[in-house]
Design a protein around this nucleic acid. Structure first.
Length: 623
RNA sequence: GCCGCUAUAGCUCAGCCGUGGUAGAGCAGCUGACUUGUAAUCAGCAGGUCCCGAGUUCGACUCUUGGUGGCGGCACCA
């Protein structure tokens, strides 16, 4: 491989990190023994960067073992933007250790150690690592199935079991940084001991590394927890961990989204209901949730009765369905609820609004026949795409999760349900991913993830087929032949939970919500006290037209007020001085700083009205 | 829940270890002056059970220890 690179040019030979032979990534030392399609991989290829990251994990492990010979190595894979390596060590690594490790890594880079691949039979490999005291590696090797010899990579005194490929020498690293240290369970199992995981990031060039660090900074600025405080949207406090207190501005945002969803669901023929917060524990036993989730359910005892604070809405929706005898003519029956739920989420799992203990789902359950699944799923997707588009999300990832090993229902029913979901997915004309075995035990499901402006995927919507719950809770309808049948139940949510979705929105927009969602759409600013009365008139006039407007009549300089409301991300700042007062106009400035000039109140109302009517849709530019 | 880190004024943060003697700044708030034209007017005032409990000490924001919350991960997520 290296010879080929050399034959093309010394620059390429130097830049070569790995090669690709007939589509398979190999080391530069790989020998090609027949006619093959060959490519040289450098830091400019995504594959090259991945090889670099993987090798960087080895580089880090080598540095750790030089500094701390007692540390045992385990695994060190590539992750998005970087890598990590898990170590077993007698004490936790400190930030100072991280610096020392990074310095040692730089030294090893300077040493320009050759990275050499070798192959050992399993027994020899086990003996080698056992002698080195690397018990975790021994365990890994023992668990690898098959009898083939295993490949190893050596650089200087360091050797690691690895499939490869790796960079040819330790001199190839140009831009890396250790980012954090954290605990992680051995083999990802919480029954096992905890190891020390060091995270790092590595790039093909210093410029790429810098850009990555800047992206992290940008993400930090957009952090919804930070913006939630700055923009006075919500807060958390110790007395109610994981339960948001919504402030006036945050609640306006929340309610705007809720009314929007209410309207959308009405258009899609949902019937909105509301069910109790406390329901006797027996219902949760009947539904099977108590058996599985009792640890995560809040409960309340009153008058010698045990109630659960509802962790989900499904059983309650079945109760509503069960009232009165239902006929096949009633199906499909679409029940929707903005259902407030409480779950005792593990303390370490909570994260701002993204994972909370009290939340409201835009929940819905469709009771239908098996034949109706496909059309119901198709209609749901139409709703979901409309909604996501209105919120400004155009890139949606679709995933179908199919039957797991442990499941209820016959294979025929699963065949039909999975087919119905596939047909509905195919009908969208979009690509979708298959996640075999990832479905719930009661039925297959589709998950919808949207891509935010930072390129992160956020799973929000879902639709799940359920063959099981209606039977448990005795839901029935009278079929055409007057027999009693169990309906199929579809669980579905578009936003998922309001809390999480708002968290996603805040980060996506960096707090600058599109005008239709902004808690305050326009603020009227006077230049001197003289225009206070006129300001009030402008505010009232906008409010009468249904806009969310406020006035700021404080005795402050106009620059001060503009700065303040720009920081609060109010979309429109209406400046009013003597000139505007006399002509009955407003001077319109956007939060971006752009000046739209002076216009009449009606013109401004039309402008903002049209913008609101477009929601957050981002027009795809027509050719 | 697990590993590590962390908690000082409404907010953002100093001070804390070496060297234990109950605290400072900026912004926000209040008062006054100024009446101002597109991202911070000036001056003054007020504001803290230093997260909670226990211990060590003559004395604890500071040291030790136990809680609780938060942060970074892991595990979990109906």
């Amino acid at each position: 491989m290296a010879t080929i690179a050399e034959s093309i040019g010394p620059g390429l030979a130097n830049a070569a990190l790995a090669g690709r032979v007939d589509g398979v990534l190999v080391d530069t030392s790989f020998t090609i023994d027949n006619d093959s399609e060959v490519a040289i991989i450098t830091e400019r290829d995504q594959d090259g960067v991945e090889v670099l990251r993987h090798s960087c994990a080895h580089l880090m492990a080598q540095a750790v073992q030089r500094l701390y010979p007692k540390a045992q190595v385990t695994i060190g894979p590539v992750i998005e933007n970087g890598f990590y390596y898990d170590f077993a060590f007698e004490r936790p690594f400190t930030p100072e250790d991280l610096l020392a490790i990074e310095n040692t890594m730089q030294e090893i880079v300077k040493e320009n150690l050759q990275v050499e691949r070798s192959v050992l039979p399993r027994d020899e490999a086990i003996n080698l690592f056992r002698e080195m005291g690397e018990n975790y590696k021994v365990e890994i090797i023992e668990d690898i199935p098959g009898e083939e010899p295993l490949s190893f990579y050596r650089q200087g005194e360091f050797i690691d079991l690895c499939r490869g490929p790796h960079v040819p020498s330790t001199s190839k690293f140009k831009a890396f940084k250790l980012t954090s240290v954290a605990g992680a369970y051995w083999r990802g199992n919480s029954d096992n001991e905890m190891l020390q995981r060091i995270y790092g990031t590595a790039w093909g060039s210093k410029k790429d590394l810098k850009q990555h660090l800047e992206r992290l900074e940008e993400a930090e600025k957009r952090d919804h927890r930070k913006l939630g405080k700055q923009l006075e949207l919500f807060h958390f406090q110790e007395e109610a961990p994981g339960m948001p207190f919504w402030h006036p501005r945050g609640w306006l945002l929340y309610q705007t989204i809720q009314s929007y969803m209410q309207q959308k669901q009405r258009e899609h023929n949902y019937l909105e209901i509301n069910t109790p917060q406390l329901v006797d524990y027996s219902l949760w036993e009947e539904s099977g949730h108590a058996a599985k989730f009792s640890e995560e359910m809040f409960s309340v005892e009153s008058d010698n009765r045990m109630y659960a604070i509802k962790p989900m809405n499904c059983p309650c929706h079945v109760q509503v369905f069960n009232q009165g005898l239902k006929s096949y003519r009633d199906l499909p029956m679409r029940l929707a609820e903005f259902g407030s739920c409480h779950r005792y989420e593990p303390s370490g799992s909570m994260h701002g609004l993204m994972r909370v203990r009290s939340f409201v789902q835009d929940d819905g359950h469709i009771f239908c026949t098996e034949e109706q699944i496909q059309s119901e799923v198709a209609d749901f997707m139409e709703l979901l795409f409309e909604v996501y588009r209105d919120f400004g999300f155009n890139d949606i990832i679709l995933r179908l999760s199919t039957r797991p090993e442990k499941r209820v229902g016959s294979d025929e029913i699963w065949d039909d349900a999975e087919q119905a979901l596939k047909d509905a997915l195919n009908a969208t004309g979009l690509e979708w991913q298959l996640q075999p075995g990832e479905g719930a035990f009661y039925g297959p499901k589709i998950e919808y993830s949207l891509t935010d402006c930072m390129g992160r995927n956020q799973q929000c919507g879902t639709i799940q087929v359920d063959f099981f719950t209606p039977g448990l809770l005795k839901a029935q309808y009278v079929a055409e032949d007057s027999s009693r049948k169990e309906p199929v139940m579809l669980h579905r949510a578009v936003l998922g939970s309001f809390e999480r979705f708002i968290g996603v929105l805040i980060e996506h927009y960096g707090g600058a919500m599109p005008t239709w969602l902004a808690p305050e759409q326009a603020v009227v600013l006077n230049i001197t006290d003289k225009q206070a009365g006129y300001c009030q008139k402008v505010e009232d006039s906008l409010k009468n037209k249904g806009f969310r407007a406020i006035s700021d009549l404080r005795n402050e300089k106009i620059g001060f007020k503009i700065r303040h409301h720009t920081l609060m991300k109010v979309p429109y700042l209406l400046v009013v001085g003597d000139k505007e007062m006399e002509s009955g106009t407003v001077a319109v400035r956007m939060r971006s700083g752009k000046n739209l000039g002076t216009m009449s109140i009606d013109d401004f109302s039309n402008h903002i009205g049209q913008e609101i009517a477009r929601f957050g849709r981002t027009e795809k530019k027509a050719a």
